[in-house]
Design a protein around this nucleic acid. Structure first.
Lengths: 134, 134
DNA sequence: GTGGGTACTTTCCTATAGTTAGTGCCCTCC
DNA sequence: GGAGGGCACTAACTATAGGAAAGTACCCAC
């Protein structure tokens, strides 16, 4: 067994990383950052840090469970930093890490893009719907 | 009742569009383009058009049902163009519209970014996991 | 004539998301 | 001084979304 054989066997079958491969870890990371609430958490934290319930009020429609779950996932992936101060009442601040900031800038750009193109999509939907009622 | 009152009442309560508002249409559009399979469909179609089952083979792990559903949603939103040739066997080509291309460029950039940072995330996860087994 | 390919749709079942209620501790209100 | 609310969660339950598999209808190759 040669050295190159050892490397080939020891390394995962995901080189180079490819999101189109269901087994590639990059697929799961992409799912975390593009998840329903992940996108909004990252976008929110881009301009400042937030406390848990402050974030919950800012992001309309998110449940406490899903916000906590999303924040834990993003923290584990190294996108979000959780700063818990041992005071009463509890105070926990969430901030972006440098890695999280890079991701957040991209999802924020996408969020702003959709906000700008709401009317384009509405027109497309009207045309689509009208084409099949006839 | 003044004219400004009429405008305020007649227009939807979503101006300017804001993804943080659960009721804003931009929220739903963002969910479509960042959906689990929407991201991958847009990214795939960026470099060329695909037929249905070609796309299904290219995007690992997608079911026929979810691919059809995702394509219909993206078509209705005006991101994807469906070109069905009335031949036997059926031939349907999916392409991006100009609007879809703009969205696809952004999600593709995000996909490539995650592929490049797989190792950073893996390290963050190892550190996170090790911090709570002790 | 059996198997495979095309592009889907339908049915069924499970996994995931969301809703609700509970935790423990503190502050403010009247 | 008891009621209500805020803080940051967690646990249990339920509704909905997602995935597996089969069906459709037609054709071609072997």
């Amino acid at each position: 067994m040669s050295v190159s054989d050892q490397v080939a066997e020891g390394s995962p079958p995901n080189f180079p990383p490819n999101v189109m491969d269901a087994m590639c870890p990059s697929r799961m990371i992409l799912e975390h950052v593009t998840s329903r609430w992940g996108v909004l958490v990252l976008a929110a934290l881009l301009d400042r840090s937030y406390r848990f319930s402050e974030l919950r009020r800012f992001i309309g429609g998110v449940s406490e469970k899903m916000l906590a779950q999303t924040l834990q996932t993003l923290e584990r992936d190294g996108f979000v930093h959780r700063d818990a101060k041992p005071v009463i009442p509890p105070r926990v601040d969430y901030t972006l890490t440098p890695l999280g900031r890079e991701a957040a800038e991209q999802v924020w750009a996408l969020a702003r893009w959709t906000e700008r193109h709401v009317d384009d999509v509405r027109r497309a939907r009207d045309a689509y719907d009208e084409a099949r009622v006839s």
